[in-house]
């Protein structure tokens, strides 16, 4: 599903050059639930961002569902993300000015779909994460666990084949973390969604199909 070949990422300032990723080769199969672990600053999130086309690699090649992403323009890249990838972030990144339902239907705004259909799909996604009763709330009125469930609903509303989750349980206590993890596992099992998750939590990582460890920008396991 996702093929990374010799991925390099170098951050440059006027005086310093930092090698964040160094020749990463990784293949994620369709329907796989992969977790990435490693110490802080080892390049986990950078790798996830590159996989999700949120950041450009300094070198190497990314192929998603058989498509080489190197030559995609801004518009094509946006379309690609919209159709194929859903994101879950550690700090949720919900838009506080919009109600929960509006937040969830956001990815559908960038597709050709009628308002009614958008509402129905968003409500259905919220139902899957058990938040049907919070549709009219604003994100600031929710707990951390609820916010992350809204973020999951937003990630799945467009029925993407890939979900990239960057420390989705990082800001949650263990009970809420487990709840979120259960939802992700269910999505993977029932819908066959390919999931790549960055985590610091060994226990969560063990629940996934495969674990990849990074150290100083290189893959060590």
């Amino acid at each position: 599903m996702i093929q990374l070949h010799q991925i390099e990422k170098v951050y440059r300032t006027d005086t310093v050059e930092t090698q964040a990723l160094n020749g990463i080769n990784l293949a994620v199969a369709k329907g796989e639930f992969l977790s990435i672990m490693g110490p802080s600053g080892c390049g986990k999130s950078t790798l996830l961002n590159i996989m999700g086309l949120l950041d450009e690699p300094s070198g190497g090649q990314i192929s998603i569902a058989g498509s080489d992403t190197r030559n995609l323009g801004d518009k094509q890249m946006a379309h690609f993300r919209n159709q194929r990838i859903g994101f879950i972030f550690q700090s949720y990144h919900l838009i506080n000015d919009l109600r929960v339902l509006d937040n969830v239907e956001l990815p559908l705004l960038y597709r050709k779909s009628a308002a009614k259909e958008r509402r129905e799909l968003a409500a259905e996604a919220l139902g899957k994460v058990g938040l049907s009763n919070r549709m009219k709330h604003f994100p600031t009125q929710l707990s951390g666990g609820q916010k992350q469930r809204v973020a999951i609903a937003r990630a799945i509303v467009g029925r993407p084949s890939i979900i990239l989750a960057d420390e989705p349980t990082g800001n949650l206590d263990s009970a809420m973390g487990n709840e979120v993890m259960d939802i992700l596992l269910r999505l993977n099992k029932e819908d066959g969604t390919t999931i790549v998750m960055v985590t610091h939590d060994e226990q969560m990582a063990r629940k996934t199909h495969r674990l990849v460890r990074l150290f100083d920008g290189a893959q060590v396991q």
């Binding site: 801004d74 993300r81 919900l94």
Partner: peptide, 16 residues
């Protein structure tokens, strides 16, 4: 910034 990032991540192009 967060809103811009999220919108782009979920499919908004620069033009949109």
């Amino acid at each position: 910034a967060s809103e811009i990032g999220v919108r782009k991540a979920f499919g908004a192009s620069s033009g949109t």
